[in-house]
Structures are given as C-alpha cells and as structure tokens.
Design a protein around this nucleic acid. Structure first.
Lengths: 233, 233
DNA sequence: CGGCCATAGTGGTCCGACCACATCGCCGGA
DNA sequence: TCCGGCGATGTGGTCGGACCACTATGGCCG
C-alpha cells in the first residue's frame, strides 16, 4: 500500500539515486537550490542523518554543493565539477597502474596537443608562451612544476574539449606529478624537458597537428619509459 | 597545545583526507579491515555521525567498502573500483558534452582496439567472436546492446591496460548508450553497425593494429557525427 | 563429531539537541 | 530620506545516544 518503492540498497544509496534521477529528468537544474536537508528528508521519508550522507556523497562527486547557512545547490554540472574525483585515482595509484595512467595521458595529451595546434588562437598561444618563458627562467622545482602544469593546461584548453581537459587535469594532479617527477627530474631531465616543451611550442606556432602530436607523445612517453624502467629494475 | 591539526574544511572532509592519507602512506593496505566506526571516530576525535559521512564518501569513491555486520574494508584499489564513479559523468551529461565524451571515447577506443589487435590471444579472440555472433543472431535491441557492450569490453581487456578499460567502461555505461543509441539505431543503423563490428573483428584476426584503429575510430565516429548533427539541427 | 543456535559485535538508521554561519529586514541615527 | 549596523530567522554542521539488522563466532546439544 505504501507509496515508497521496495527497499533496494541502503537508505542513503536510494536517496542518492533519487536525487540523481531528479537531475537527470530535469526536475533539478544546474545552479538551482534544493529544499532544506530537513524538508528533503521528509519528502523521501528518511531521517536527516541518512539524507546528510546522501548529500555528502553527491558533494564529493561534484554534483551538489552545500553552502553553510545558505542552502544546497546543484553545481553547474560542468566537466570540471564532475571529474574532480578523477584525481583520487591518480593519488591512490601505485606501481604498474601509474604506468597505465601515464599511457592514458600520453594518448589523450598527444591528441589534445594536435587539436590545439590546429585551433589555438594568438591569445591562447601567448598564454602558453608566458608559462614556457617563466618555466625556463627559474630553477626552483616548485615554480617549474606549477608552470609546467599551467603550460599543459592551457594547451588542453585550446583543444576545445572541456571533458578531455578535465580528465587530463586529473591525470596531472599536483600530488601525482610530484610523486612521479621527483625522481625523474633529479636525474638531470630538466634540459631534456625544456627541449621537449620547445618542440611542442614550435609545433603549436606552426599550426602543425602531426608534429604537435609526436612532440607531446614523446614528451609523456619519456616519463612513461623512465617509470617503466624504475619498476622493472 | 592540542594535538589536533588546525581546522581546515569541514570535520568529515578532514576525516576523508586523513583516511586517504593513511592509505597513501601504506598504513592501510588493500583488502585490510579498518577499526570500527566507533573506534575510528574516537581516534580522530569526531562524532560517529561525521565519521559515517566520511566513510560514505569514500565508499562512493570506491576506496572503502562497508559490509553490514562485518566491518569496513579497503577495496583492492583496482582501476575498476576507483573509476566506477566515472559513469556518473556520462549519466548526468547532456548536449554538447555528450559529443565531447564520445570524442574521448573515440580516441581511447581506437587506441585500445589497436593495442588489442597486436596482443590479443586466441582465447580472448574467441570470446570476442562469441559476442559478435550472438549480436548478429538476434534483433532484440536489449540483447544486442548487452553483447555490443561485452564485445567492446573484451577488446578493451585484451589491450592490456586495465585503467583504460575502466575508463572506457564508464564511457559506455548502460544508461549512457541507451540514451544516445536509441535514436541512432532507430534510423536503421543496425546493418552499418554490423559491418563496422565485422571490420573491427577482421582487423583483430589479422593482428593489424592500424586497421583496427581505423575501424574503431570510424565506428565511434559514426555515432559521434550523428549526435553532432542531432544537436546542430 | 557435526550441525544448530544463542550471543556479542558490527554497520545501518533514526531522533533530538545545539552550534556556526548567511541572509535579510528592521530600526535608529545622520 | 538614506544608510549602516545589528539582531532575528533559517540554513547547514556537529554531536550524542538509542535502537535495529546483520554477521560471525563459539559453545552446546543431539
């Protein structure tokens, strides 16, 4: 007789599905404010505790955003919001899977760089050059790493595929690269890295997609091979 | 004076970071059982409610697994565990981002198929053929879709990169493809899909990576172009 | 010796209270 | 009239405890 559907899964899990369904069906628009935790709990016939667990889960997934004292809101549901959790994979991976992640990155990064070579605008190119120059003007590893990340981020953005850019962002998370690149760059790879970045830049300036693809693939591939050797030996 | 670190972020958020850190530092091994919720809450100096929110968050991320009546365990932290949430992106995406997701899938799927062509074993090939045959032996869309998914899944597995396979799995989630392919296949694309699958299969049998890459790219690209046209018009 | 069952321990759920913060409107002074 | 501060209200955030549902263990009975 009860209106509630048969119990499948835990109570919070059901709430998660229901809220996701509301968004999927368009009953909740991006940016829209949800009812209060208390009201939502009553609507779904569950306790506030369980509702909070569901909200917390959707928050870490980048679907909802809770603002203390204000309310709960649906995010813009952009690629960056939803793929932020991708970084967790990179952070918790180790050994062979790091190589797999670098392989995925090589594939996507080379394609993104090729697309960028074809589409990049003068303004975007100037931004890329800014980070390239800053990267070569210092020898502080921290600063270099920051501009290195920004360098590739600008290129990924120029490729025009936000989803791909967000995935690459996750694959290049700060902790991930710090872990892998520490040993790599200690082996005097600075100069080689500079040459590879210069090659990528030249291909972008020349609007040569195939050269850009090759340069980016080689760039990531270098690190990939080094890491493979580290694990193998 | 207090031992507890300065308060940054919410209480559950801090707990999430601490547990993640424990795993990252190797203090928690995959498959290992955690202390009870109550003990953990005491250890971190927080309430059980907050601890439960943290556990729920790490559960949806695929890092932890809670077994009712038994305890909380660290997952194997395999690619499949951690990338399960990737499907959420596909489920909640719409419009232009669906095209972006298909573009990412085209890039990864074509590469994975190429790798598979080079490495696939007779046993794996037999498995692929099984789904290909089953797919062509019926006209029930549901059955076709199931074998279609399995067909590509076996190929991705044969590529030897679990991470890539897990990402492709998320990009091919049941709800995602059901949404996109519904309209596509209603336009009589069955026959074309069969030819494309046959082409992929031939390339695998011939162990021809480049042919496999081209066939897979064309296969996904067809859907991608169709969807692009749907949105544009 | 083996299977069954009581029991202790675990996660799952609910409730109610209080705290911290954001927002908005009221009120008083300029 | 205008504007700035301040307090009331509503929101999410946290806490503690109680009880339920399930698992697993070990001892007891057949």
């Amino acid at each position: 007789m009860d209106e509630t559907a048969p119990q499948k899964g835990s109570v919070p899990q059901r709430a998660i599905e229901q809220i996701k369904a509301m968004i999927g069906e368009g009953r909740l628009e991006p940016g829209q404010r949800l009812p209060t935790e208390r009201d939502l709990a009553v609507q779904l016939g569950i306790s506030r505790s369980s509702m909070r667990e569901a909200i917390r889960a959707l928050t870490v997934l980048g679907v909802l955003e809770a603002r203390h004292g204000s309310g709960i809101y649906v995010t813009q549901l952009e690629a960056g919001d939803l793929l932020e959790t991708f970084g967790v994979v990179a952070d918790l991976s180790r050994g062979p899977r790091l190589v797999e992640l670098l392989e995925v990155r090589r594939i996507l990064e080379s394609t993104a760089t090729a697309l960028a070579a074809a589409r990049i605008t003068p303004d975007q190119l100037a931004e890329v050059e800014k980070h390239l120059t800053a990267m070569n003007a210092t020898d502080d590893p921290e600063v270099i790493l920051a501009h290195d990340l920004a360098f590739h981020r600008e290129i990924a953005a120029a490729a025009g595929n936000d989803t791909m850019a967000a995935i690459l962002e996750g694959l290049s998370s700060r902790t991930f690269r710090a872990r892998v690149w520490r040993g790599y760059q200690e082996e005097g790879a600075f100069e080689r890295t500079r040459r590879e970045h210069a090659a990528i830049h030249r291909a972008l300036v020349a609007h040569d997609p195939e050269a850009a693809r090759a340069a980016a693939a080689a760039h990531v591939g270098e690190v990939e091979e080094w890491l493979r050797a580290q694990l193998g030996g």
